[in-house]
């Protein structure tokens, strides 16, 4: 599950050639317009400014930094992730709009790197969220970062980079790992399960024992729908 190659690629079933062109166009645009939320978790972040500014200039590839997870497409994890940070990373990841991509930069995100003995560090990032791309190195040079991003762009254009679907389809797996780390009453404000239902992204692994555990203590997350309330009864106290 954690390996990228195992993620099944679902072929577009539509026969209409026009829609094929359209899909092609959309994928192209997605690949050429990437907004990065660089979540500066560790030392790797220091390599991003050169990647962005005049020396390497990411913008020529259509890559821009963004501030809020809502606006971003790419979550850059730039270094070791402590458990406390991981909670925020997951929260942030879930708040991003799909399609979204996770790039782990530096060795620490691959296997904990020099922190692999630490009790407070998450070793493997892809246990908690699907990672599209790792850029190894301690730290990787901006060239490597750009090269990685370009690889991601190619994957997006070819339609391979859809790990974000995996998060919906195998939510139970990721939630289980998260619960193992954060305790049983772990909950994020984003309601992944209803979202998966809403967008028809349900998979076999969406539900499982961990999601059941979540449902037991979950605080309600339904959106506050507009209502007139004329036909509602007074709450009986």
């Amino acid at each position: 599950m954690s390996s990228i190659n195992q993620i099944p690629v679902i072929e577009a079933k539509r026969g209409n050639p026009l829609s094929k062109v359209f899909d092609e166009l959309v994928r192209f645009c997605r690949s050429r317009s990437l907004f990065i939320l660089h979540y500066c978790t560790g030392c790797g972040a220091i390599e991003l400014p050169p990647a962005m500014t005049s020396r390497f200039d990411m913008e020529r590839l259509g890559i821009q930094p963004m501030v809020s997870p809502r606006q971003a497409d790419i979550l850059l994890i730039t270094g070791y992730v402590s458990i406390k940070t991981l909670k925020r990373v997951i929260l942030t990841y879930e708040q991003m709009g799909s399609p979204k991509y996770v790039i782990g930069i530096c060795s620490c995100t691959v296997n904990g790197g020099m922190y692999w003995q630490s009790y407070a560090t998450a070793k493997k990032l892809d246990e908690y969220m699907p990672v599209d791309l790792y850029i190894a190195g301690c730290m990787p040079r901006p060239e490597a970062v750009i090269a990685g991003l370009q690889q991601l762009m190619n994957r997006i254009q070819s339609g391979e980079a859809n790990s974000w679907e995996d998060y919906f389809r195998n939510y139970d797996y990721y939630l289980g790992n998260q619960q193992k780390l954060f305790g049983d009453n772990w909950q994020t404000p984003t309601d992944i399960i209803t979202e998966a239902k809403h967008y028809n992204l349900m998979g076999e692994g969406t539900f499982g024992e961990h999601t059941r555990l979540l449902e037991q203590h979950q605080k309600p997350l339904e959106a506050l729908d507009m209502r007139l309330g004329h036909n509602l009864k007074e709450p009986t106290e």
């Binding site: 959309v26 200039d57 259509g62």
Partner: peptide, 18 residues
């Protein structure tokens, strides 16, 4: 800023992508 800057259709890419 002495950069190259975005390609010609970058605004369109952004809008379509979003």
């Amino acid at each position: 800023q002495r950069r190259v800057g975005p390609p010609l259709l970058q605004p369109l890419y952004d809008i379509v992508k979003l």
